[in-house]
Structure formats: structure tokens, C-alpha cells
Nucleic acid binder design. Structure first.
Lengths: 131, 131
DNA sequence: GATGTATTTAACCTGTGGGTTAAGTACGGT
DNA sequence: ACCGTACTTAACCCACAGGTTAAATACATC
């Protein structure tokens, strides 16, 4: 999972129309026209959205007569979930308090660094998350 | 959690520089200059990235002398994790096979609908995900 | 082979995202 | 008071995302 793949996945998910399409596909395969139906949007627009989702690997497309049925491919969503899970401890309430405490402690030491030589800061807890 | 908030969070996370900044902030508060240091990018560029992260609620900023220390606010990441978790069963390998089976079953029934009257499809498993 | 349906492609418009440089603001130290 | 440091704002550029309409493609049916 390269950083670029994650970037395109997030970019794809940033559009509510595309998220709605994914949601719709959880109840099964659907044709382009069926997917377009809930939206006040031209077919080519939907077609573009589907192309984005396909490039990102979030859907796969079939080829039956004149239909191009879409089905959900949730693989990249696991990457998203895994990425976000790295920050789990930072949204846990208990950690918030711990963080405040650690910040106070840190305050006693040297901060930011004035002028050219600012010491590299150390990680305080756990390993560094993947980007 | 409105759909728009989720959209801006995903949009914010779609940029690798911003994700790197978040990762850096897991090891504690940092000044803008410190955050900028790893990147071959002008300060204003970093400043803009921070503004995006702040608007999205992913960081909060302090005000100490001429420094604007940033700290991580992981709240929105929980929303991301929760959203992605809705699709958990779709990336589980076991489900893939189940899905294939169900798709075959469905194939026996009417498909897509020819002409005007295509029947509304039913959800097959569980509830509909939030968008 | 003409017609209708499903979908994509092409050409185009507009807004915005991410970068730049240059100037402005705010603060501390001497 | 002046200088250096930290950071933001302003003005600008360019690429691209998301939408449009109109035309092209692919297939099924009559």
C-alpha cells in the first residue's frame, strides 16, 4: 500500500456522490442507470464518478450485453480503516487527559528551539504512524 | 456528523503532506517551522496545509509569542474509522465467497429491468451504510 | 437494417486546490 | 529604536476535478 494509493482512495471518498454509490452497492450489483437514478446529475457525470471508483479499485465492472454492472470492491477501505486505526489512541478520551499531562511535562523542558539549533524532538509514545 | 464534514475530512486526508504532518504531530506539539522542515516546500504552502487541517478540526493551534504551536485533534479520524468500519464485512475474505454465492442466486431472478419498469432492488444483507 | 436503450467519449466551462514569490504583521533580544 | 525570527496574507499561476451538452459506440429487438 503506497502513499499514493491511499491518497487516491481518500480523494475518491471525498465526494459524497461517490460515497453514496458505494453505499448503494452494498445491497448488490447495479447497472449505471440504476446507480444514476437517485441523483440529479447527467449520465456522463455518473460515468466519470464510476471511472474514478474503478481506478481506485473501489468497484469492479462487468460486461453483460449493453450493461456494465458495478460491484463493490472494499479492499481499499480496509487500508483506510487501518490507517485511521493508527490514531485510535489519540481520539480515545482517556488519552486526551494523558496527552495534556505529557504536554505539561514537556513544557518544563526546552521548547521549539530559538535560532538555528533546535534539537530534534523525540517520539513520546509508541511508534510513528505510516503516512 | 454531516456528510459535508466527512467530505472535508477525506479531502484533507487526500494530501500526503497533510497526512505526514498529522503523523509528525503524534509525537507532540510542534511549531510551524518544525513541521515545515521535512518538506521541500515554502512556508506559505505549509501554512495553507495547516489552515486546511485546522478548518477540518484535525489540529488545533496555540498562540505563544510568535509561535503558533499545532497539536493533533484526532476526533474526525474516528468518524473516518467508523465510516470505513461499515464496510468491514465487504473486505473480509469470507464475505467475498458469500457474495459470489448470493450474486449467483440473484442471477436466476430478474435483472436490471428492461425498459421503464425495473423493480426496486432489495437490500440483501444488513442495513444501509451511512454516506 | 432501422430503432431504441445503455453507456462512453469528446469538447468545453468553471471553480478550486496546491504551489509560488513578495510583502505585511507580530514578537523578542540587544 | 532596530534587527532577526516566526508566521500569515495577498496576488498570482497552473493543473485538475466535477459538471455540462452533443456525438459516438455497442448491443437487442422488430
Amino acid at each position: 500500500m503506497t502513499s499514493d494509493q491511499l491518497s487516491s482512495t481518500f480523494a475518491a471518498l471525498a465526494d459524497p456522490t461517490r460515497r453514496a454509490i458505494l453505499a448503494r452497492l452494498t445491497s448488490g450489483e447495479a447497472s449505471v442507470t440504476q446507480l444514476a437514478e437517485p441523483f440529479e446529475m447527467s449520465m456522463p457525470a455518473i460515468s466519470k464518478h464510476l471511472k474514478v471508483l474503478e481506478r481506485t479499485g473501489l468497484i469492479a465492472r462487468g460486461h453483460e450485453a449493453q450493461w456494465r454492472p458495478c460491484r463493490l470492491k472494499a479492499g481499499p477501505l480496509k487500508d483506510v480503516a487501518d490507517w485511521a486505526a493508527q490514531y485510535r489512541r489519540f481520539w480515545a478520551e482517556s488519552f486526551e487527559r494523558l496527552d495534556d499531562y505529557l504536554r505539561d511535562v514537556q513544557k518544563k523542558g526546552k521548547k521549539y528551539g530559538h535560532g538555528k539549533h533546535h534539537g530534534k524532538q523525540r517520539a513520546r509514545i509508541g511508534a510513528h504512524p505510516r503516512v
